[in-house]
Design a protein around this nucleic acid. Structure first.
Lengths: 155, 155
DNA sequence: CCCGTATTCATACTTTAGTACCAATCTGTA
DNA sequence: TACAGATTGGTACTAAAGTATGAATACGGG
């Protein structure tokens, strides 16, 4: 990938090179290059171009940052049952009162407690509970609780 | 941070430089450097040291590794109770048999069913259940089920 | 207005759950 | 070995749950 920045750097390098060449030419005519000064001359050029190369490379490399993305999985345990399984609930075809009774039943309340909570007689609760058992296809309140939790039809 | 690798590179660079200097010296004495050949000579040195500098820089700097950790939230709807709340369970101080009975009780089984399942008499189950109620501070099996589910001490 | 369903309540009964008290056996620990 | 706790089982009793049946009332749709 040759970005606009790279091209700019290459152009800059070209300009620097040109300037140096002209400087050398000028030095060649103006100052006499002595025979024993060639070493120093060559050394200066070597150092200069080495530094230039290093600087160039650093500039170019700076844009080449290797980014490693590590996806850290955070497991969120959604334990609480927020939603009621409406589908299963409708299948049972429970009446409003029966569902009310079921909700209190699953909370561990006795028939007497449910009766006083709903301002009804124990007889009425027993009737509702019996009808519940038939509709839910269970034989005891404990089974009703187990099935309710399993089908997720209560909170 | 100057690693052993960096030192090796610097030494290599020194050696290259020394070799080049000697080569130049050799050329200086062996082949006559013509006046108009100085440009070519300087150019070669410039190119060589630029490449050397780039190479050096690349070796020293290498690629910068930027590590970005992205936390990805994964919601796992863990409906089923995978782990038992051991802390709450130990608080209740239930015996092994009592816990066995509790597990079957919460599944909606009757005393008779639990008895036949564990090859025990109904009397024994009644005793265990009564002791369970005292330890769990409840008054009925439905309350025991509710509390067990709430404290997450059963599967 | 009639019909089906929901809701309420009652009585009588059976079954199950739960309590109280006792006792034998087993088991790990001081 | 003695002892506390666990496990098993029994009897007798009370309380609650569950079944069966009947009946009155309310309420919405055809």
């Amino acid at each position: 990938m040759t970005s606009r920045k790279d091209i700019r750097h290459i152009l800059l390098y070209g300009v620097c090179l040109a300037v140096l060449i002209f400087t050398l030419k000028w030095l060649q005519w103006k100052v006499l290059i002595l025979d024993n000064a060639v070493d120093v001359y060559v050394g200066l050029i070597a150092v200069f171009f080495t530094v230039l190369g290093v600087w160039m490379a650093r500039q170019l490399v700076r844009t080449r940052v290797k980014t490693i993305v590590i996806e850290k999985e955070i497991i969120i345990n959604n334990t609480e049952q927020a939603t009621v399984n409406e589908t299963e609930l409708k299948k049972l075809n429970l009446s409003a009162r029966e569902y009310e009774v079921l909700q209190l039943l699953t909370k561990g309340h006795s028939n007497a407690e449910i009766a006083s909570h709903l301002y009804l007689s124990v007889s009425t609760i027993k009737t509702h509970v019996s009808n519940l058992f038939v509709k839910m296809d269970v034989k005891s309140r404990t089974q009703a609780i187990e099935k309710s939790k399993r089908l997720k039809i209560i909170h």
